[in-house]
């Protein structure tokens, strides 16, 4: 089954003709991803990488039945691009762009709240179901098919977690990069819920990061699940100094003082196995698998 994407997912690529998009779309195609359409305004009717290009998402859906998109659009165009996808009725959108202004993300979230569309990102490596579909920029050569679900707020640590499953002789059902921006689309709750519904996922690796309350929210949801799948968690940033600028003062003002240790405690309290060192994840996985 896997979650959110599989080989049936019909993928369209927004901004398909760009250099970075071309590099990664070609790799996704080679990986076997069912890319059915590209969308670049003004280039409708042409072909790129053997894929038909349309002017609008609506046309692309009408002609190809696409239901998910990978957005290779510049940060400045993200609000417009999400709005178009939501109005056209896409199920899933993956936003790769870095540097999306926070105010634009407030708009994006307001648009998403009134829709069925799920957004992954921005500033994410995307989502990959090994052997089936790669929506984003994952280094696909490190992935193997398996039964561990991975969800991570940090792009680079996502890859680290993938390598850990490999060291435990396991593979991944689906890997989701939530993105590490101030405001993100899909969160831990959505991912944990989906992995629990998926009969191909036996256990979950959850990679958190300092700042925000996303881990706490995920832990609170997990705590109340009746039939829990094991979650192995880690929160990066334990040794960061308090006065460091990677934190956002607004967090303190909105929710009070929250340290990485608080996050870890909340997660442990909810029944999550939390490790200190990212390279210890495979040890915990081995215990679960055995």
């Amino acid at each position: 089954m896997s979650v959110f994407v599989n080989k049936e997912t019909k993928v369209l690529v927004q901004g398909i003709t760009g250099t970075q998009a071309s590099f990664h779309v070609k790799r996704s195609l080679d990986y076997g991803t069912n890319v059915v359409a590209g969308v670049t305004p003004g280039k409708g009717g042409t072909e790129h990488l053997g894929i038909p290009v349309f002017d609008t998402i609506k046309e692309a859906i009408k002609e190809t039945g696409a239901n998910a998109s990978v957005m290779f659009v510049p940060a400045k165009q993200v609000v417009v691009a999400v709005k178009e996808g939501v109005e056209a009725g896409l199920d899933l959108m993956v936003c790769i762009a870095d540097n999306v202004p926070v105010k634009d993300m407030l708009e994006v979230k307001a648009i998403l709240k009134q829709s069925k569309t799920r957004l992954i990102g921005p500033n994410t490596p995307g989502i990959i179901t090994p052997g089936e579909a790669r929506l984003g920029i994952f280094p696909e050569n490190i992935h193997t098919v398996g039964r561990i679900g991975i969800v991570s707020r940090s792009s680079t640590l996502t890859y680290e977690a993938v390598l850990e499953t490999k060291r435990a002789n396991a593979g991944q059902s689906t890997v989701i990069g939530l993105g590490d921006d101030m405001i993100i689309g899909m969160d831990f709750v959505d991912a944990i819920a989906a992995f629990h519904e998926d009969d191909q996922t036996d256990a979950i690796v959850m990679v958190g990061q300092m700042g925000g309350l996303f881990e706490e929210e995920g832990a609170a949801y997990y705590r109340h699940l009746k039939h829990k799948k094991p979650i192995i968690g880690i929160v990066a940033g334990n040794t960061m100094l308090d006065d460091h600028k990677m934190g956002y003062v607004g967090d303190l003002m909105t929710y009070g003082d929250i340290t990485v240790q608080d996050k870890v405690n909340t997660m442990k309290d909810a029944g999550i196995i939390v490790v200190d060192n990212i390279n210890d994840i495979h040890k915990e996985l081995l215990k679960i698998i055995a």
């Binding site: 940090s154 640590l157 990061q209 990066a236 940033g237 334990n238 040794t239 060192n277």
Partner: peptide, 15 residues
């Protein structure tokens, strides 16, 4: 090449 990996590397060095 990322915040997360920076944090994780620093955590390991500190350990």
């Amino acid at each position: 090449n990322g915040d997360g990996i920076a944090l994780a590397a620093m955590d390991l060095i500190r350990a």
